[in-house]
Design a protein around this nucleic acid. Structure first.
Length: 462
RNA sequence: GGCCCCGUCGUCUAGCGGUAAGGAUCCAUGGUUUUCAUCCAUGUUACAGGAGUUCGAUUCUCCUCGGGGUCACCA
């Protein structure tokens, strides 16, 4: 069985890069009928992990992603880790180190002065004398001091590290007894039965250390897939300073979950020339072995395109549901279909669409001056009056086509071009020269409001 | 600085020894539309550089350059 996991540290929200690796993990687990687990890496304890976990679940909810099983909190598993620390100590694979922080930083300084790599010198590796007084020892693991550590990565290929280049006896438990990251990650991934670790490639250099832990404990090493970073415009790792990195900000801005997921799945991964993926297609086609090797730059142009694509192609009943968080309650609106049809091709975001709806249903409060000058001349007022009279006289006006016929009649009878009625009418109805089809607008606002807006416009501009 | 990774249009990417280097987005132009948007059509733009290997390299190897990541009793 394929078991993947998403293991964020508690930062308080789910960020866009995290979501992408979570999505990859999720898709791969679902595709294989496996499990997608969630673990909070809160060995630090200072930050509020409960809140962070809730934020993640909330974002997952919005996006329709679901993790399996209980959320694992590392902060609650000290007893478990303690067992393994004890075991390594007893087996002689780890040891207590009494070097003080001062001594350690002195060591580092000399190494730096000598232009050597800074690393622990192994002073207590084989120590069996009397420990110095007043020092709470840290626990260090005995790492190999020479030889090769091979990381078999599903994205980058086999990567070979030399132990002497990168390893030292790193700390697995602090002076207060609390375990450290590289130690607990390996234990938890093993205990949770994780078979494939899909994570950001900023973790690549941690992997050899984790492999040391796996091997010391006799655990099987999972498969690794190190996903390239998402960079900002400057080509640096994406961070909070780069604007919207909180996933929920995208809901705020009016993006649909589908668009965001589709955007993210194509960032660093592809399936031939296909750009549009339904959730089912993502699950069917995703394979971590097709993940790109190189970092990608975060640029939301394509997200905008995808978003408008999905808005255009979402059925109206679902669209009105998506619009609810933006203050639009259309479910029982009698002109809902006409309204949504008229606007879904015009909005880049749900938020924008909500604003467009409001623009249509509101009586204009001002009129674009240049447009008034250009198209609201005396003859235009005659045309509008003639049209308003027809509207008033007609009791069967429901569909856009009903209004269109009336416009056509005026055009024919007065022997004028369509623009002669269209432009002033547009100005009267919407106060400006752009917007959806007038026949739709009138069908939406209805006969009385149509006449009212025409009259207001004539009063205001003649 | 050590170690590791990466390098195809501005951006996201296809390519897996022989291609007019393809798609998407963006941008520009034209068409459709009473307007704007949509939609359709057309167009501009890329293999970082240099050596090899080979009949032939975007594709394989090496070097250079450029970018990134990481080097904690943080995760």
């Amino acid at each position: 069985m394929v078991v993947t996991r998403f293991a964020p540290s508690p930062t308080g929200y789910l960020h866009i890069g995290g979501l992408r690796t979570a999505l990859f993990s999720y898709l791969w687990a679902r595709k294989n009928g496996g499990k997608f687990l969630l673990r909070i890496e809160d060995t630090d304890k200072a930050r509020n992990s409960q809140e962070a976990a809730e934020a993640i679940v909330k974002a997952f909810n919005w996006l329709g992603l679901e993790h399996d099983g209980e959320i694992i909190y590392q902060s609650q598993r000290d007893d478990i880790y303690a067992v393994y620390i004890k075991q390594l100590l007893e087996e002689g694979k780890a040891y207590k180190c009494y070097m003080s922080k001062e001594e350690l930083s002195e060591l580092r300084e000399t190494q730096m002065a000598n232009k050597e790599r800074t690393k622990y010198d192994g002073k207590y590796r084989d120590f069996n004398g009397t420990p110095p007084e007043g020092i709470e020892p840290v626990i260090r693991i005995k790492a190999p001091i020479s030889g090769e550590i091979l990381v078999r990565d599903g994205v980058k290929g086999d990567i070979s590290f030399q132990a002497e280049d990168i390893l030292d006896d790193f700390v697995i438990a602090r002076g207060d007894g609390s375990p450290t990251y590289n130690f607990v990650v390996a234990i938890d991934d093993h205990l949770m039965g994780v078979t494939e670790v899909i994570r950001g490639d900023d973790h690549l250099s941690n992997t050899p250390k984790q492999i040391v832990v796996y091997e010391a404990l006799g655990f099987d090493v999972p498969k690794f897939f190190h996903v390239p970073m998402i960079h900002n415009h400057e080509g640096k790792k994406l961070s909070k300073r780069d604007g919207a990195t909180d996933v929920m900000a995208y809901k705020e801005m009016g993006y649909t979950p589908q668009a965001l997921l589709n955007f993210l799945v194509r960032l660093g991964w592809s399936y031939g020339d296909q750009e549009i993926f339904s959730m089912d297609e993502m699950m069917e086609f995703f394979n971590p072995k097709n993940i790109n090797k190189s970092a990608s730059i975060y640029n939301t142009e394509k997200l905008d395109w995808l978003n408008s694509h999905y808005i255009k192609n979402t059925p109206n009943n679902e669209l009105s549901r998506l619009l609810e968080p933006y203050g639009l309650l259309l479910t029982s609106h009698d002109k809902k279909e006409i309204l949504l049809d008229a606007l879904k091709e015009r909005a880049k975001t749900l938020k924008e669409m909500a604003a467009l709806v409001y623009e249509i249903i509101s009586h204009p409060t001002s009129y674009d001056e240049k447009a008034v000058e250009k198209s609201f001349k005396a003859d235009a007022i005659d045309v509008l009056r003639a049209f308003a009279t027809k509207v008033a006289a007609n009791s069967e006006l429901h569909l856009p086509s009903d209004y269109h016929h009336l416009m056509q009649e005026v055009v024919d009878e007065m022997k004028i071009g369509f623009g002669k009625i269209g432009q002033p009418l547009r100005l009267a109805l919407l106060g400006k020269m752009s917007g959806p089809g007038l026949d739709s607008v009138m069908a939406i606002i209805g006969k009385d409001e149509t006449i009212s807006r025409i009259n207001s416009a004539i009063t205001a501009n003649s």
